[in-house]
Nucleic acid binder design. Structure first.
Length: 227
DNA sequence: CCCTGATTCGC
DNA sequence: GCGAATCAGG
């Protein structure tokens, strides 16, 4: 049976995707494979993220084999690109870090940051080298002007060396979307009793105060547990 | 080897 | 529409 992409799941997918989580990460949280995530994201027309690889378009390959004449991209006639430097520079600076030049910081909104992507909402995907996977940074999302990070205090989290294999911990489901109610998923998605919290979310966040704490405590992982 | 994401194509 | 298989770069 094909995965049921309900409004909620799609919303979650969108949310996580926008947060910059890796497809595999999203897949784990949604209990689907990364392929499913990528496929769906693509179908949804979500903005593609910087692909680690470059692939010749199928059409190109097909055309090539077909012996069709190369389309030739025209002389440089059009250079509408203008200088990407205009907005790019300033924007990048702002988006990346208003003050912190640290490559790893993402002060913006990177709740469950997978690998510290700059996750700039609707901004040029500047994310380049995502640091060798942040070990375990108690990243309490510091949303500007929003509730002071509650005593998130999660020192209890053991530090599994640098081994990524040990990165398995409980995780935070991930929700979003509702505009007016907390989307924290309760129960198992797909099962009868499943529902969302529904409480009033804190301004600027998809979750209510309580769940926001759980959601932004920097948890990720959970390979095939969930259920 | 691990990871990543994109595309293809049978279902 | 879905997603496993496959591809391909880091």
């Amino acid at each position: 049976m094909a995965m049921e992409w309900t409004e909620e799941t799609i919303a979650r997918l969108r949310e996580l995707w926008q947060q910059g989580l890796s497809t595999a990460e999203i897949g784990r949280q949604l209990s689907v494979t990364k392929n499913a995530v990528v496929g769906k994201a693509h179908r949804l027309g979500l903005q593609a993220r910087p692909s680690p690889i470059r692939r010749p378009p199928a059409s190109a390959r097909a055309a090539e084999s077909a012996g069709a004449v190369a389309p030739t991209l025209e002389p440089v006639a059009s250079a509408p690109v203008a200088s990407p430097v205009s907005p790019a520079a300033p924007v990048a600076a702002v988006a990346v870090a208003p003050q912190a030049a640290a490559p790893v910081a993402a002060p913006v909104v990177a709740p469950v940051a997978p690998h510290v992507a700059e996750a700039a909402p609707s901004v040029a995907p500047v994310r380049q080298e995502p640091a060798p996977r942040a070990p375990v940074r108690a990243e309490t999302e510091t949303v500007a002007g929003v509730a002071p990070p509650p005593p998130v205090a999660t020192p209890s989290v053991s530090r599994p060396e640098t081994s990524r294999a040990s990165l398995r911990a409980v995780s935070s489901p991930a929700p979003r979307r509702s505009g007016l109610s907390c989307c924290w998923p309760l129960g198992d998605p797909g099962t009868p009793g499943f529902h969302f919290c529904g409480a009033t979310p804190v301004p600027g966040k998809p979750y209510c105060a309580e769940h926001a704490q759980l959601a932004y405590v920097k948890l990720r992982d959970r390979r095939d547990n969930v259920a």
